[in-house]
Write a protein that binds this DNA or RNA. Structure first.
Lengths: 201, 201, 201, 201
DNA sequence: AATGAATGAGGCTTCATTCAT
DNA sequence: TATGAATGAAGCCTCATTCAT
């Protein structure tokens, strides 16, 4: 490959790793596959990230920060909570439709790697907890069936993330092409909002 | 371990594999870890299942059939659709709360292994499709926000499976003990039903 | 290779490692060279010894015990100290002429590896210290030039071990064949004793 | 590091290499460790010495010449042989107490590397042989127990070099601090001379 | 002269799998 | 049926070396 200056190569490698893990869902991918995707020598991955775990931690942390950013941008705005939720769903799906397996990667890492769990505890957990109170009000005001804010949040996450993770499953069941799957996901922006807020058609 | 007769050992190994993959979520588990869990020699796994892929395919197929059975039992009954859905949720959660990562395993296998995808196509996909029509009616009768039966089904799956897959994530965010997590999931039986059918509190 | 029963293979590997390190002096030898010498697969070395360091520690410990044994056998006998020293020299040279680089291996390991140093501290150091007193008397009775027992011991070790370690150096300087070198070493049995006890011809 | 002119850097690198190999005894040291010691970039070592083997050969040759010089200076003087030997011991110990592992390095190189052996054959071997005759006389005149000049020389080398090589071993056995070890070595100047010439206290 | 980036070769180790019993 | 021993392939990582600047 052409010689990149500065830390362009570092970025290149991270993008390659994200493509492999987040886009393609190859959870067992080895260093060679990532190097191939980046078009660089395998040893270069160690040059920049020392070892496999660190590379994974780096892209994991960036993935967490990405998720975080999306939500921060929306939730710190002046919108009503309902609009915030709507925007979150819209942004989230737009941003991660190309990285359908990102959440699966996060789940797997947090489940199996203590360092990853700590990262999650630091980056994501506190953020969630600060939302709970506001959501609690929304539920009570509208007598929503989610019962409490924690269940509400998990329901929201479920409806957003699961269909991404399940790309192949969904395509397999409904015999979807990539485009049909993408449309199916895009349609969900409205659906998720209405289901979450329990609005009927 | 005590000498088992017949295919007791085969079952023992399968149970061990399920424990490792479905209960513990160790998606990268190797043959040794499964053998250790079963308390048998590593070579014995090959004796019964020839190779790693076949062992995984076997427990994958059983997992699919299990899911299938749960739904069949309910859906071929005389209940109303609403009761069917309620029963499905109840059964599903009761049956798989001890195998929280089963669905993650299925998703990963279907995503990364062609043979697994074919298995899914054969066992699960046709079953889903036969539900669509009945659900379509329900949606129209109640003006449900899910819009169409496919989205309805995916929403249902999302709300059932995602919180199981995310056991560690949820426990990490809300600082849950195992018991608290379990209660959180049990509470969802009612919540999922109400959210799906858009009933308010 | 033919399949050995029990821990024959383990011994085989240890012997191979000793040959490589102690006989041939290949201090940089890798696992492949040892496996080749043993005529077994490289992975088998890990099967028996887990990793390189452990294999080296095992043969190091055996080398230390060997040295120890040689001296114990002699020094706990009823002989006069002079006879003990004579016997030690004789045994030592007979035993280790085929392992000329054993002492170099020990020195290098103790110098560069903390675990090896601890092994030395446990196995060898205490043994030496228990000799000091007896030697002290000998020196005084004979007005020996070694001055004190510690210097005496180090002189003895120097005269025994250095010419073994320096096999190639000596052969190179004096243009010795293997047989001539061996004779040169054998001649030293008497010389070392006389030099140590300061007897003249 | 500050920019050195000319071959100052070359010297710097050689000194670093000598420190690592001769002072610290790190026989497995890699290029990075030497570069770190010198405070320069790893690639610079290749710029000056092309490859690892050449760098090692260069410092090996300088080490041999150093040893050589020490002996030449003494042995070509007008002193009596006894005084020459005394001076050699004194000089040798003074010069190499800071490079205790130099001789170990030489031995190892000559043992394992043909080019190093050739260097030794060229630089050191002829020098030794020219001493033999003179020593032979000394032995006969004094009925020394060394029996012949070759054994005499090897005994002298053993008593000089082995305690240096064994720095860690000796410190470990006698629980010596660095200063105590140094004193132990300094005391040997007199001892070695007396033992070699078989003078009693 | 000096360095950061990049690479190929090789070393250690793990692992699925097979063999022999 | 069950297992300890053995192997080949592959994975991670290190390292000497080279490249480009």
């Amino acid at each position: 490959m052409s010689h990149n200056t500065d830390s362009e190569t570092e970025k290149l490698i991270k993008e390659a790793a994200k493509k492999v893990f987040f886009s393609q869902g190859k959870i067992h991918a080895n260093m060679q596959e990532i190097a191939d995707e980046a078009g660089v020598n395998r040893a270069l991955l160690h040059y920049y990230f020392r070892n496999r775990e660190r590379l994974l931690l780096v892209i994991l942390e960036e993935a967490m920060i990405d998720s975080h950013q999306v939500m921060i941008k929306v939730l710190t705005s002046n919108m009503s909570l309902e609009d915030k939720i709507k925007s979150t769903i819209d942004y989230m799906i737009d941003r991660f439709i190309d990285y359908p397996y990102m959440q699966a990667f996060i789940i797997n890492e947090v489940t199996n790697n203590e360092n990853s769990r700590l990262l999650h505890e630091r980056h994501i957990a506190p953020f969630f907890n600060q939302l709970l109170e506001e959501i609690e009000k929304l539920i009570k005001q509208n007598n929503l069936a989610h019962k409490n804010s924690k269940q509400f949040l998990i329901n929201l996450m479920s409806l957003m993330h699961y269909p991404l993770i399940s790309k192949k499953i969904i395509s397999n069941i409904f015999n979807y092409s990539d485009d049909e799957y993408k449309q199916f996901i895009m349609d969900r922006k409205e659906i998720i909002l209405n289901v979450m807020l329990q609005r009927k058609n």
